[in-house]
Design a protein around this nucleic acid. Structure first.
Length: 213
DNA sequence: ATCCCGAGGG
DNA sequence: CCCTCTGGAT
């Protein structure tokens, strides 16, 4: 039974490599601060919306010092249409202040330190570690969570951290970062929450929740 | 468990 | 109208 999940995992790796050979982070950024801000902004919204807002935002605030000294009300206007804008604005400012004061302007390279930053939880920390420092990690967001249980790699009721642990056991470490992005793409364009494109899916035979379930 | 919260799709 | 979108803090 544990063996069966390992076989599923191998199959998922094989199929997703075929489907999305070039899957990568779609957030646009040019520095560590810009990446962290973009990830914080991406909560409960699409990366497309984030990328629409960040050019003006990054032109106005160019580094950690600018974000740390930002006026909350002014920053809010740049991100208002992303939702959760008050929380995100405050978290970005507090995050920048903490990185400057406690880490001398250098983002830490471990989850525990990153997760002490305002607005940075496990998912955000993992995305940052994987994308900026290329440290193997699997960020479990809404897409990864849904795709994992539909493909039988985890349970629907599993917490994000449990799904993360299961996927780390099922996937070889060198696949972690790539599979994270491929599962995101699969969830976004095929295995969608509402109206999944099961007809186009090459993994119907291992799916635990075929449409319309 | 609940709140924060706007935009887009069905 | 309701659900979903790369969540986190209380």
């Amino acid at each position: 039974m544990g063996q069966k999940r390992v076989e599923r995992a191998r199959r998922v790796i094989q199929e997703l490599h075929q489907m999305f050979p070039d899957a990568a982070c779609e957030l646009r950024y040019q520095s560590d601060v810009e990446l962290m801000v973009a990830i914080i902004l991406s909560a409960q919204t699409t990366d497309q919306s984030v990328n629409a807002a960040t050019p003006a935002l990054f032109a106005r605030y160019r580094n950690l010092e600018d974000f740390a000294g930002a006026n909350p009300l002014e920053l809010q206007e740049f991100i208002r249409h992303l939702g959760l804008f008050k929380t995100k604005a405050n978290n970005i400012i507090l995050m920048a202040q903490r990185v400057l004061q406690e880490y001398h302007g250098v983002f830490p390279k471990d989850h525990d330190s990153l997760m002490t930053l305002p607005g940075v939880g496990r998912k955000t920390a993992n995305v940052f570690l994987a994308e900026y420092y290329h440290i193997p990690a699997i960020a479990v967001d809404t897409h990864v969570h849904r795709v994992s249980y539909r493909l039988g790699l985890s349970m629907k009721t599993d917490s994000p951290i449990l799904v993360e642990a299961k996927l780390m056991k099922l996937f070889p470490q060198e696949e972690w970062i790539g599979m994270h992005h491929k599962m995101i793409h699969f969830g976004r364009y095929f295995c969608k929450a509402k109206k999944p494109s099961c007809e186009r899916c090459p993994m119907q035979d291992i799916c635990t929740t075929p449409f319309p379930q």
